[in-house]
């Protein structure tokens, strides 16, 4: 047994994923990141919402929680605030995180709560059979855009940087080693971190867009992947369909939410309570003096 397999819960296999699905690559990358950081599985909780990607926690041999569609970050927020000493990882699909869960996503980022989000962007609602998502590229055919998608997609990195996330990165399933490395770095980050992983859903997206096997889809992803440095040299038109990868934003100085709560709010409240008690005591002794 290789070391990273300590983090895999084999007894729940097989996974529900189609052969060649990118989700398997993400599963292994996360397990390897856990392993390289030599984390105790008991100190980790992996939380997810609903979707093909949402099934991932079942396969980690850590504390795991499979919640409701789009809301994994809310459960994770409760766990992190209750146990700031533990590592809270959230796995979310593109629909899960940016459509139904969009509100929770920006607020988790804004709070900078110490949750490490791995957002698997396959550009479609995989689990429900291939409907359009807020990250489906324009013109793509899906089950609910039979004439082509007219909606522009979010740029997750820009969205989350604007929402004040303190660690924003992007990688693709084509590059498992780089993926593992960036996931590992995000796990070492103290505040809210997100790694957007561009993944392939050849079954429910590729198939309808002339990319019916994993190879065709991963080639398509490859053609759209550029380094951050290259991306910055591109014109706005050139950038439109490209995904810059690597760590796109990092702020190590912003304080993490639960840290702030325990180091600022609790002492402030306790000081207020003490001051009030003191005043009360003075008042009673003063009134006693008046009486005597």
């Amino acid at each position: 047994m290789r070391h990273y397999e300590r983090y895999i819960r084999y007894r729940t296999f097989p996974t529900p994923w189609c052969p060649g699905c990118g989700d398997g690559v993400v599963l292994k990358s996360i397990a390897m990141a856990f392993s390289e950081l030599e984390l105790d599985p008991n100190d980790i909780v992996v939380v997810a919402g609903i979707g093909c990607s949402g099934r991932m926690p079942t396969f980690f041999n850590t504390n795991t929680l499979h919640t409701t569609h789009g809301r994994a970050l809310t459960f994770a927020t409760g766990i992190k605030l209750a146990r700031p000493d533990k590592m809270v990882v959230v796995i979310s699909g593109d629909g899960d995180a940016t459509a139904i869960g969009g509100n929770h996503l920006i607020h988790a980022a804004r709070r900078n709560i110490g949750i490490n989000l791995v957002l698997i962007n396959n550009g479609v609602y995989g689990m429900t059979g291939g409907q359009v998502s807020p990250l489906t590229p324009q013109k793509f055919i899906t089950e609910t855009t039979p004439y082509g998608n007219i909606e522009p997609k979010f740029d997750i990195a820009e969205l989350l940087i604007a929402a004040k996330a303190s660690f924003v990165a992007r990688e693709t399933v084509n590059r498992p080693v780089q993926l593992k490395d960036v996931v590992k770095k995000s796990f070492q980050h103290k505040g809210f971190s997100v790694v957007e992983v561009i993944s392939n859903c050849h079954i429910n997206l590729g198939r309808r867009n002339r990319m019916k096997d994993p190879i065709a889809m991963t080639k398509w992803i490859e053609g759209r992947t550029v380094s951050k440095a290259q991306y910055e040299k591109m014109s706005p038109e050139e950038r439109l369909h490209m995904y810059p990868t690597g760590i796109l934003f990092e702020d190590k100085d912003r304080l993490e939410y639960s840290d702030l709560y325990y180091k600022h709010i609790i002492p402030a409240a306790q000081a207020a309570a003490e001051a009030a008690a003191l005043k009360q005591a003075e008042r009673t002794s003063a009134s006693r003096k008046v009486k005597s």
Partner: peptide
Amino acid sequence: GACIGASL
């Protein structure tokens, strides 16, 4: 959601 997470 946060309550359920914290309860767990």
